[in-house]
Design a protein around this nucleic acid. Structure first.
Lengths: 246, 246
DNA sequence: GTTATAAAACTGATATCTCAATTTGACGCC
DNA sequence: GGCGTCAAATTGAGATATCAGTTTTATAAC
């Protein structure tokens, strides 16, 4: 049951149904899922340890509002893990896997240039590309570490609106071409550069949240009126089928 | 309270008071610490997620018995994180920090060659060296990721007896000399090699536990007699002040 | 209208209790 | 004597109740 609650809440955060900074109630979720709030507490605690939530002891729990060092640190860790995965991919991936992922990269690129609301499809496919690279590295522990880490970034990118602005059209295709070429250090280095450009992108987008934090460092308000500063920032997406509106 | 239980149990595992495969009881720990077993459950759940414990739903909880892929995967992740830290150390560490850590490395090496029971002191200092390198990388998230990861290895190394057999006398000193030289890629590579040799070392030592797992894959026996296979492997250390016996 | 304040509602944390699954150890059977 | 079986003990998981701290809101004073 705790696992069910974990998956449900995690999905909601990752799909952007719960915006950054939004306060959630253990009791309401428990009632909604038809269980006591003890397994829900367990799930939320786990999500807090993974960095998706934050809570103050007796005030409330909300979707984590990242700070600038948070995002920087996240991408440093991610750079370490994903460049390692790229290196192992160059060493161990089969021929089929290499061609599969090259094709996937080209699809991601083609979705990237379209600016009509395929944002969620693009994000999902982009995450799949990175996940598959990690899986082809043939190391479960590394895959796990990466998927734990990239869940965080998914949250942050879900919250922002603009579809990747200044990426070259063949961004991922070029990356995969290097990974396929089977030179491990070069693969690691290419992934390293890729992650760094992702970081700059994310930094630019999340800037508004960094400003916000200085204004309301630790607000766990449950009502609407005092969250106006936050609400002004969150994209209007909300409902799941509304992705074609931008 | 949950935090207190977490720290206590974690300490016991890391100090080797709880051997690999040993079964522990939530209720006994709760009684011992004077609290309900709910906060204890929370603490044990966290330790399970961190990989220090393993449990079967209604059978029991024990200190995790690592498999070969576990250890391999652990060191792959660790290689990724620590080589990143080494790179950032080469870039950002101050002059004072560089000389401090070089001295620390030399102390670690000198303890390494002595074979009279300074094992716990050596392990502690060795861990401190790696921790300080991560801290000097100026990235809290990376430090956290590393300390979470290296806790696992500490458990495993605590369980084994032999003081690092075939390391060259100036193993860590040479590593630090490269880190200090301020060439980031070279620093990363040196750390990478260092971690890999650590892995081979750990693999050799933990081999007996890998064999064991095939015999008793999932035993949560609370009695002594069926654990004879495990008991034969655990070092006689146990009591904290008994380190000078080997 | 604004501000200060106190009661009310709500939150997370813990304790206590119950329950189903597992292990244990003793009993009976061959 | 060895082996299968079943009751008792133990375990982790969940439900409910209680408590202390925080936020909200209604109230009163200015």
């Amino acid at each position: 049951m705790a696992g069910e609650a974990y998956v449900t809440v995690r999905e909601r955060i990752l799909r952007g149904e719960l915006a950054i900074g939004q306060v959630i109630s253990r009791r309401k979720i428990a009632a909604e899922l038809g269980m006591s709030f003890l397994p829900v507490s367990e799930a939320l605690l786990r999500l807090e340890h993974e960095g998706l939530l934050e809570s103050r002891p007796r005030a409330g729990t909300r979707v984590r509002v990242p700070t600038r060092p948070d995002v920087l640190g996240h991408y440093v860790v991610r750079e370490a893990l994903e460049s390692q995965a790229a290196m192992l991919f160059a060493m161990h991936a089969t021929r089929d896997e290499r061609s599969e992922l090259l094709k996937l990269a080209m699809r991601v690129d083609s979705l990237s240039v379209q600016s009509d609301g395929n944002r969620f499809i693009y994000l999902g496919l982009h995450e799949k590309l990175h996940r598959r690279i990690a899986e082809c590295a043939r190391c479960a522990a590394l895959s796990d570490a990466i998927s734990r880490t990239s869940a965080l970034a998914s949250t942050w990118l879900c919250a922002t609106r603009a579809p990747s602005p200044g990426n070259p059209p063949a961004h991922h295709e070029n990356l995969l071409k290097i990974l396929i070429a089977a030179d491990p250090p070069a693969a690691a280095d290419a992934m390293r550069q890729h992650i760094r450009s992702s970081m700059e992108n994310a930094m630019r987008r999340l800037d508004q949240y960094f400003q916000l934090q200085k204004v309301a460092p630790q607000t766990y308000s449950r009502t609407q009126k005092k969250r106006s500063a936050l609400d002004a920032l969150t994209p209007p997406s909300a409902s799941t089928h509304d992705t074609a509106s931008v």
